[in-house]
Each structure stands twice: as C-alpha cells, then as structure tokens.
Write a protein that binds this DNA or RNA. Structure first.
Lengths: 91, 91
DNA sequence: TTTAAATATTCAAATATTTCGATATATTAG
DNA sequence: CTAATATATCGAAATATTTGAATATTTAAA
C-alpha cells in the first residue's frame, strides 16, 4: 500500500460521522444498508451519501446494489493492509 | 480512546508530508530532529512547523527541547491505542 | 552583549471539505 | 405507464486546511 493510499484511507477515517458508520458494523454484522446509515446520522441524505462515498472511494466499504437498495460490507482486506502499514511505523 | 481522538489522529495521518515524517523514524531510529524534518520535506520551514504541530497535537509525536534544537520521539502508546481501535472495527 | 541559528507565530491567499436544498436517476410497486 | 422510493449529483455557502512571506521568540556562540 503506497503513501497516497494511506493518506486517502486516513482522510476517510478523519470524520466523526464516518467513524460512526464503520463502528455501526459492530452491531449490524455482515452488512449495513444505506437507509440504516441515513437513520444513524443526524445529517441530510445528500450529506450521508457524501460520507459513504468517501468510505467507498477509500475502499473501506464495498457497495452492493440490491434492487433499489444499496448495502455495504466492510473491506477487511484493505483495513488489514492499512493497519499493517501503521504497525510498520513502529520500526 | 474516544471517537474525537480517533478523528484527530486520522486527520494527522491524512497528509502525505506527515506520513513521510512518521516513516522517517524507520531510518532514524530513536528520535528525529526538527532540522532533519526540514531537510526531508520540500516545504518551507513554517509549513514543516505546521505539520509537526499536527502530529504533536495528535500526540503521535512527543517533542523534547534540547538546547535550541527540538527532537521528537514516536509515541508508541498512542499509535498502539489507535491501531487497537481500528482492529476493533473488525467485529 | 551582540549576533547567528533553530523554531514558532501571524497573516493572507489558495485550496479542500462539509453541508444542504434542489434536482436527477434508477428501480420497484401499483 | 405512473407514482413512489432509494440513492446520487449539482451548486453554493460555510468552514477548515495547506502554504509561504514576514516576523517573533528562544537559545547558544562569539
């Protein structure tokens, strides 16, 4: 994982709303529906859409179309790669 | 570690120059001098000072005054706490 | 004590991010 | 086909971040 990618993931994680989205996966195992995220956050739908886009662009979330709904799963592989990079900072 | 702190650390990590600073610790074990960081980055001194401040404010770096020089050490405790929070996202 | 070196602060400009209202698009239900 | 639902995009305002020139502060050297 190159530094540009580390930067992008860090930026995706640098917002209280996006952190809340990721943490919601602890309760809702497996996947989170877009509509659930809209309920979770105290923001308008376009703002939530924006935040989800940051997480998808960073590849922390994988979107899956399901009819007219959209569900997301955590991309554990990218998260693990990111954590591995942070661990490497510790010499 | 609360979400505000996670946000702050993530933001500190969301810049290519600050990532480069942290990675420089791999080469320069132990500590990094402020002047070394000025040499490392292709930025003016005030900009470097700004970036170092972000890292110190996030407590990723601990500053130590040494005469008229300043040296930094990696705060492994905070880095580990942060990594632990990220690991908790994986259910 | 004067001068030089290392670092920080202030200010302003440029750029990026966050937010929301309005609207567009896509899909399903009736 | 039409209406309703779910999500995305656009445009603009508010706010935050990044950068560097100018300057201030702190400390050591001469």
């Amino acid at each position: 994982m190159d530094n540009k990618k580390i930067e992008k993931i860090s930026r995706a994680l640098s917002d209280i709303n996006r952190i809340a989205i990721l943490q919601e996966f602890k309760k809702k195992k497996d996947c989170l529906y877009c509509a659930e995220v809209n309920d979770l956050l105290d923001l308008t739908q376009p703002s939530v859409s924006h935040h989800l886009k940051q997480l998808v662009d960073a590849e922390l979330l994988l979107p899956q179309k399901e009819g007219r709904n959209l569900k997301y799963v955590l991309n554990l592989e990218v998260l693990d790669d990111y954590i591995a990079c942070l661990n490497k900072l510790k010499d």
